[in-house]
Amino acid sequence: MFSYVTMPIIKISSGTNIIILIFLSLAYLVILDAPLIYFANKNRNRSFLETTENICAIIKVALFLYLITLAYSIFVFNSIVIQFMKASITPGIPEWGITLAVLIAAFANSYKGVGVLARVSVIFVLILLFSILLFALFSIPDLDISRLLPVYEKSNFMELNKCAILIATISTEATILVFFGGCINEKLSIKRTYITSITIYLICLIIIVLPTIMILGNKYAPMLLNPYYTFARQIKLYDSLERFHILSILAGFPCIIMRIGTKSLIGKEIIDTIFKKKTRNGIVILVFILVIMISMNMFKNFKIVLLNLNFYANIMLIGHILLIIICFGIWIAKKKSCNDKRYGTGGS
C-alpha cells in the first residue's frame, strides 16, 4: 500500500494521462510478477531456501544485493512515514520516537511469522478498502471532472511506458510468494489469489487516484508530500466533524507497518538462504531493523536523493529483475539437472 502514502502514480506521472497510466502500470505489474508467480506455483511446497539447495556464489551475491535493495526499501518506507508525520500529524514528536514506534510495531508484526502476517493483512486491507471507499463517497459533491480530462503534454508512448514500469516496480508484491512458497496451503489456487489481489490493487488505485486528482488538480497534487492526505483533509462530513482525515492515517499506517514487516521477514529468509541455516525470527529481524536505524543516521545527508521516488523506483526495478533472473536461473538449472539424471539412469 505504498501508493496510499506517496501516490507514486501521481508523482511520477505528472502530466501524463492518468487513466491510461493506471491500466498500463497494471499490465506491467502482471508482466513483472508473472515469472515469480510461475516459479511459486511450480515450487509450491518449497520456499526459496529449499529450492536453492545447491547454492552457488553468483546466487549468493545476487541475493545479497537483493537484501540491500530490501533494506533500502524499508529505509525509504520508514523515512517517508517520519517525513510525513513530522510535517503533518505529530510535529512535536522527535524523529527517533516515530522510528522506534514504527520499527517496534513492524518487528512485533513480522516476528509472529507469515501465517499471522497474512491473517492480519486481510483485516487491514478490509479496513483500508472501507476507509478509501468512504472518502471517495464523501468527496463526490466536491469532485470536478474537468480536472481529470486528459492532458497529453507528455503522453508519448515512451514516457507513458517508462512511468508505467516504474510504478509497477514500486507496487510489485509477488516476491512474498517466492520466499514463503512452503507456507501456501495446497488447496489454494495461486493464480486466483493473485487475480484477487490485483483486482483489489486496481480498485484501490482507481478510488484513491481519481478523486485525488479531481479535487486537487494534476498540477497541485504532485507537488504535495502526501496528496491523499491533503485530499482527505478536504472532505467534509456534513457539519458533524470538520474533517475526518485521521481515518485515512489510521487505515493506511498499519499497512505501511505490514509492508515493513513483510520485507524484513523476506530479508530474514534471504539471510537463511545465504547461510543455509534456519535462524530465529527475532534475532535476524532485530539485526535488520538495527541496520536500518544506523543507516538512517549515516545517510542523513543523502536523504533527498535516496527518497526521490524515481530513484527508488529504479533501484527497485533493478532489484526485482535480479530476483526474476535468479529464480529462472535456478529453475532452468534444476530442470536441466533433473533431465540429466533421467538421461543418466536411462542410459545405464
Binding site: 505529530t90 510535529p91 512535536g92 514528536i93 522527535p94 520516537g97
Partner: peptide, 8 residues
C-alpha cells in the same frame, strides 16, 4: 524521560 510528546 525524553519528553517525547508533541501534543498541545
Amino acid at each position: 524521560a525524553f519528553g517525547c510528546t508533541g501534543g498541545v
